[in-house]
């Protein structure tokens, strides 16, 4: 599904990713771990097409197409979803209006008829239960006045509604208490199937108790220095990152 080859990315003239390789097959969950500043968020942003992240070398192929040639919204319509580390507030824009616009943008892209208000209501009602989110949040402006936990839950709720093929969870666990973490992970797990892939970017092993990855990679200083299975995450939790950096 996703093939990253020798990816070099600079931000403000400074090289952050320095030849990253990663291959994600359909249905797989890959965890990317690493110390702060290793380039984890850069990877999330470059895959979703944020401005200011310059690919200086390498390639990213998604479903057989050159991902880097696509616009941000085109990538989204092609099924890439980024759950933001810091979800953005948009004052005055109603959450439900926003989400309906996103759903219908995808539908138009695929040549499907747009969803009407009734269908949309039904869909959101069903998905809100997955993340135990309060209905009233949909009536408020996007993320405005949401607590930290509500914002993260809202991200997973949007993911549940949009049903992406490739999800990138960028530090979704940071700042969550254990109950919220369980709810968020439950939402993510409910979406796992043979076709959907996920990249779980995190600093802590804790999240991986709930979202169990097929592969774990350690990102340090712009490259993947070690890959393994779940056990690697536990090992990292125990020993920290420093032993890896030294050996690498």
């Amino acid at each position: 599904m996703l093939e990253i080859k020798d990816l070099h990315v600079s931000v403000d003239g400074k090289e952050i990713l320095k030849g990253l390789n990663l291959s994600v097959d359909a249905g797989q969950v890959h965890a990317i771990m690493g110390p702060n500043g290793a380039g984890k968020s850069t990877l999330s942003y470059v895959l979703s097409g944020r401005e200011g992240y310059h690919v200086t070398d390498g390639s990213v192929t998604y479903k057989g197409r050159d991902l880097l040639a696509m616009e941000t919204d085109e990538r989204a319509c092609e099924g890439i979803f980024l759950a933001f580390q810091y979800p953005v507030e948009i004052p005055g824009v109603n959450s439900s209006y926003f989400l309906k616009a996103a759903v219908n943008a995808r539908r138009r892209y695929r040549g499907e008829p747009e969803m009407n208000a009734m269908e949309f209501m039904k869909l959101t009602k069903e998905k809100m239960q997955v993340v135990e989110m309060k209905q009233e949040l949909l009536a408020r402006s996007v993320n405005e006045g949401f607590s930290g936990g509500e914002k993260k839950r809202n991200e997973i709720f949007q993911m549940a509604v949009l049903e992406p093929e490739l999800t990138i969870l960028d530090e979704t666990d940071s700042g969550l208490d254990i109950d919220a973490l369980r709810i968020v992970a439950g939402g993510v797990n409910a979406l796992r199937n043979e076709q959907r892939s996920m990249i779980v970017v995190t600093h802590y092993q804790r999240l991986l108790d709930y979202i169990r990855p097929d592969h774990v990679h350690v990102l340090a200083d712009g490259i993947i220095v070690k890959s393994g299975d779940e056990k690697l995450a536990l090992e990292l939790e125990e020993k920290g990152y420093s032993w890896l950096e030294k050996s690498a």
Partner: peptide, 23 residues
Amino acid sequence: QLFYCRQRGISEEDAVSMIVNGF
């Protein structure tokens, strides 16, 4: 804000008009 909207699949023009209308 623009990036957030576009990441959800909303075109830049629509996103701008949505944010301006919200304003």
